[in-house]
């Protein structure tokens, strides 16, 4: 744990280092340090709680992009079984910033699709930092249409800074790829459950985010533009990202209050990366229960409900 933590995690990391040291000493010299260790453990938990009880929106944004945050492929084996990744859009390439495939959840066959970021430099480049090109969205569309043909519910996991703004992506129709997914997802007859697990970066996130339920992990964000992008356009300075993060209302809690998402999934103390197993367990419980609810509706009821939910999105007045 050298640079893999955030500024505000520093005091926690220091306490944990001290604790680890004490434990080492305790086991090697057979000194009875239990009391001291217990005291430190309590202090550590207390510190985590005090730091995390008052996170600013900017700190939540940093948590959403935490270098140790679990990604889609970290959750898949913990939530699903029998996963088999499927590749390619059948037109141009296989985009590594989006993964997808067949799997089972709670004994039920399904399709899983999610953005995928890389952990180390090499993998980050391989995954293009989780920024899909059109072929990624078209792969997702192919898999979703397949799921629709075979009556398989779809689970999507959102974690992207945004769709990739590159020359090739534009040439191959980035706009159309995103737009087409929005149109298609609105009308698929199978249940679709979308969960933001990290960064929900604008259209690039929404392109696998239209469905019957939208969930967010507690320290994930979902926004029309990144705080940095908003700062440089509206505040004329990228340094104002912290302020922009507050203004955009991008946290799970705020979005839930606005009625824009369905559920906020509490993260383990100190964030999902401190206990991915527990996080995955909570995630799975919610997904299974939401699927049960959606299963009780007929296809046309579900489609109508999905459409009505989309139509209600907006904040306006009528004169």
């Amino acid at each position: 744990m050298t640079s893999n933590h955030l500024d505000f995690e520093q005091p926690i990391v220091e306490l944990e280092a001290k604790l680890a040291e004490l434990r080492n000493v305790g086991t090697s010299q057979e000194l009875n340090l239990d009391e001291e260790i217990q005291r430190l453990e309590a202090k550590c938990a207390e510190r985590i709680e005090s730091v995390f009880s008052g996170l600013t929106d900017w700190q939540v944004s940093q948590m959403a992009r935490h270098p140790e945050r679990p990604y889609t492929l970290d959750y898949i084996p913990r939530v699903f079984d029998r996963f088999q990744e499927l590749h390619g859009d059948r037109m141009f390439a296989d985009d590594h910033a989006i993964v997808g495939g067949l799997a089972a959840i709670d004994g039920r066959a399904c399709m899983v699709i999610g953005h995928q970021k890389g952990r180390d430099t090499k993998e980050k480049i391989h995954r293009n930092f989780g920024m899909p090109r059109p072929e990624g969205y078209r792969k997702a569309k192919r898999l979703m249409e397949m799921a629709n043909r075979f009556g398989l519910p779809i689970f999507t996991f959102i974690d992207t800074p945004g769709a990739y703004p590159g020359v090739g992506a534009e040439e191959r129709g980035q706009s159309e790829a995103i737009a087409r997914n929005l149109l298609v997802m609105a009308r698929l007859r199978v249940p679709i459950i979308c969960t933001v697990i990290g960064e929900g970066g604008s259209g690039g996130a929404l392109a696998i985010g239209v469905g019957d339920r939208t969930n967010m992990l507690q320290y994930s964000i979902y926004s029309v533009i990144s705080p940095e992008g908003c700062a440089s356009i509206l505040y004329k300075s990228a340094d104002k990202a912290e302020i922009a993060a507050g203004a955009l209302g991008l946290t799970a809690e705020k979005l839930k209050a606005q009625g824009l998402i369905d559920s906020v999934i509490r993260e383990p103390l100190g964030g999902a990366h401190r206990n991915p197993d527990e996080m995955a367990q909570r995630l799975k419980e919610l997904l299974v229960s939401q699927l049960e609810t959606l299963d009780r509706m007929t296809d046309s009821e579900r489609l109508e409900a999905r459409y009505d939910r989309l139509m209600q999105l907006g904040a306006l007045e009528r004169e």
């Binding site: 737009a179 929005l182 609105a186 604008s202 259209g203 929404l206 985010g209 239209v210 979902y222 926004s223 029309v224 955009l248 209302g249 991008l250 979005l255 606005q258 824009l260 989309l310 139509m311 999105l313 907006g314 904040a315």
Partner: peptide, 10 residues
């Protein structure tokens, strides 16, 4: 904010 992003889906 997200209200405007959702207009794309709508």
């Amino acid at each position: 904010g997200l209200f405007s992003l959702m207009q794309m889906a709508k």
